[in-house]
């Protein structure tokens, strides 16, 4: 088991390296001069150009440039945004907290809602209503959900603030908006897993022991249905990151999404690259967690 974790960590490092390298190559591949790409839409002057050449060692051989970039990235030095005139680390550091808050709140809401729905809607009609709702949620653009929620709960009833990130009330609508599509997908997967598990011979055996249907579901079925759900952790993470870019825009919240969007529109490559590398790092963590969760849930995967 320790070996498995070590192997995981090793391949995680490889993924990180690959992401950092890909980001670097993307910078080189961008049309035009590298210095132009790094400046983006920021102020341009001979001094700034000299500063960039010094920082990125553009006057040295390509290999040195690359290794130096990796070395700096490994130390957490993500360069400097010439558009914002600040170190990238500070730009991201300032905006990390609101996005993490949003993502965690949305994930918790989505997962809890999905578990409840999958377990409760077992009857024929409840199942039909719930599946239709899931289909609609999964097929609706998240910004539409956000806009509908805004116009009903903020503009019509004035229950929640329209924008900003002040207090818990401001978190409710964005988290619900981001969490609903996640709940839609997870409920489908969980329900399908439950159906499959409750159809297996071991569920018949459990019923034949005199267990109530609910006990069979909770003690046997749920754990089996978690297996396919866990494999969606990586997807869940992607949905949170990608969704937060849009949700922050809809609700006018500060956060990494806004930073990324500004960086993309302003061609602020150092920030874009940093976001990509950061997402890769988070992705490695999430996937390692998923693998561990597998081992905990399914003893068949543990090698003795």
């Amino acid at each position: 088991m320790i070996g498995a974790v070590a192997r995981r960590a090793g391949s995680g490092l490889v993924v990180l390296w690959a992401a950092a390298t890909a980001a670097y190559l993307a910078l080189l591949a961008a049309p035009g001069d590298v210095v132009d790409s790094i400046i983006g839409d920021g102020a341009d002057s001979p001094q700034i150009r000299a500063q960039i050449i010094a920082e990125w060692h553009l006057d040295r051989p390509a290999v040195v440039q690359y290794l130096d970039y990796l070395w700096r990235a490994a130390q957490g030095d993500l360069g400097r945004s010439y558009l914002l005139q600040r170190p990238v680390r500070d730009v991201i550091g300032d905006q990390l907290a609101p996005t993490v808050r949003l993502a965690v709140a949305a994930a918790v809401f989505g997962v809890v809602l999905a578990l409840i729905l999958a377990v409760v809607t077992r009857g024929r009609w409840a199942r039909r209503v719930s599946s239709t709702a899931e289909l609609v949620l999964v097929s609706t653009p998240p910004f539409l959900i956000g806009i509908v929620l805004l116009s009903v709960f903020s503009f019509r009833f004035g229950m929640f603030p329209v924008s900003g990130d002040r207090g818990w009330a401001a978190l409710v609508l964005p988290a619900v908006t981001l969490g609903l599509p996640i709940a839609g997908v997870l409920t489908q997967v969980l329900r399908d897993g439950l159906d499959r598990a409750l159809d297996e011979p071991f569920a018949v055996t459990a019923r034949a022991r005199g267990l109530t249907e609910r006990s069979v579901l909770v003690r046997h079925g749920l754990r089996h249905s978690l297996l396919p759900a866990v494999s969606l952790l990586g997807w869940l993470f992607g949905a949170l990151i990608g969704g937060s870019v849009i949700i922050e825009q809809v609700f006018g919240r500060p956060g990494l999404g806004q930073v990324t969007l500004q960086a993309v529109s302003g061609s602020d490559m150092p920030v874009v690259l940093a976001v990509v590398v950061l997402a890769a790092a988070a992705f490695v963590v999430v996937n390692t967690a998923a693998d561990l969760a597998y081992l905990i849930i399914d003893p068949r995967l543990r090698r003795s």
Binding site: V15, A23, W235, G238, G243, V264, S267, V272, F283
Partner: peptide, 20 residues
């Protein structure tokens, strides 16, 4: 690796390089 990476982020990275 690519399939697991957030879709929107991949698209954003490309747009950042190639322009809108």
């Amino acid at each position: 690796a690519l399939a697991a990476f957030p879709l929107v982020l991949l698209a954003l990275l490309f747009i950042a390089i190639a322009g809108t």
